[in-house]
Write a protein that binds this DNA or RNA. Structure first.
Lengths: 197, 197
DNA sequence: TTTTCTGTGCCGACCAGACGGTATAGTAAT
DNA sequence: ATTACTATACCGTCTGGTCGGCACAGAAAA
């Protein structure tokens, strides 16, 4: 019945003290459940099963489901922030940060699927938990496009989010080639040089 | 003893002619529940309560929850389509349809909130039901922008969806003034004349 | 006209299972 | 012994779904 797996031994030693890997793997499991079964089936049992632990194990790390959702949204924002800043040059020219944001948002569809799944689960379960996300979103645009004209930054930002949305719904109307083309154009528009055909 | 005559054709071309009241009001109730409480709380009981009927009454019109979700997504697409085509001129010039789409997507935030809530409930509950929506989305862009260069149409389309997403999350980074400015710019870009600052 | 029949629309009680959460006993390593 | 973690059992509530029945409209029969 219950398979006692010992697979967590891998990262335990490598991980710095204080941040055990099982917690992270449970968050991974939660995202996987959302991707595979939908947000309403994100239950503690489902997370436990997916993570290969018991429900008690999940409850130990997350005292309530709300705590799980909160951790989910926190990690999603962290990842989103990290993915963006990692691509940033040390001394950015105007448009560089915006371009890094575009790349981070569309460059890793699978990673972004996880982020969006986490957010999806949160809006679906408890919209009030989205407050920090709202703030995160609201502050993003201003911080993202120094030296870029407002309208240009706004359009690039919105279009990037739109592409993200399409991925979330799996409803992109673009072929691979078209998508590449659009992404390239977004990158050019992020700099001040690009123009629209 | 209730003989269930199979005469009841499912939600096909059944136009809401004869009975606009109950069924529609239940769908309204479902959307209201999602808006107010989140998609996971979209239960048959909640819909019944919101609509002021009993659960049995809901089950009479929608034999299963899946049927309810399906009706929800169908109506959402219909509304979205209607809202767009209503703004269309009789003999559209290049860019007119695209501009009508922008206006429809951005002009009625409250109506769009209902549409997006319905879709949100569906992705959350059963992602597989989104298939028709995907098709709807995929066919929209090509049909929307005849005579407009692909890249331009793509950017306008994506940015509009992005704005829609921001509204859905209640996370618009724009002030009212800025939003108006962006919408205006989108309208200009929809025609072939607009340029980016 | 009055009575009987029939189908529609809805109700309320109920069920089996799933849900979030609690309590507790256990293991392995420090 | 303490700490860090896991597993099992259980509880009260909620879930989607079933079922028998009620009210009422209109058609049919008297």
């Amino acid at each position: 019945m219950t398979k006692k797996t010992v697979k967590k031994a891998a990262t335990k030693a490598a991980a710095p003290r204080g941040r055990p890997s099982s917690r992270e793997s449970m968050l991974d499991a939660a995202e996987a459940v959302v991707v595979q079964q939908g947000a309403v089936r994100l239950t503690l049992d489902a997370v436990a099963k997916q993570a290969g632990v018991s429900k008690g194990g999940v409850m130990y790390h997350f005292p309530s489901k709300e705590a799980l959702l909160q951790a989910l949204v926190t990690r999603a924002m962290e990842r989103s922030y990290i993915a963006r800043t990692r691509l940033q040059p040390d001394s950015p020219a105007p448009g560089d940060i915006l371009r890094a944001y575009v790349q981070a948002s569309v460059g890793d569809p699978l990673g972004n699927l996880r982020v969006s799944s986490a957010l999806l689960a949160v809006v679906a379960s408890d919209p009030t938990l989205m407050a920090p996300v709202r703030e995160f979103f609201s502050k993003r645009l201003p911080s993202i496009a120094p030296g870029v004209p407002f309208e240009r930054a706004a359009i690039v930002h919105l279009a990037t989010e739109g592409l993200w949305l399409m991925d979330l719904f799996g409803a992109s109307p673009f072929t691979k080639k078209q998508r590449t083309q659009v992404v390239k154009l977004l990158g050019e528009l992020a700099g001040n040089g690009g123009t629209l055909p």
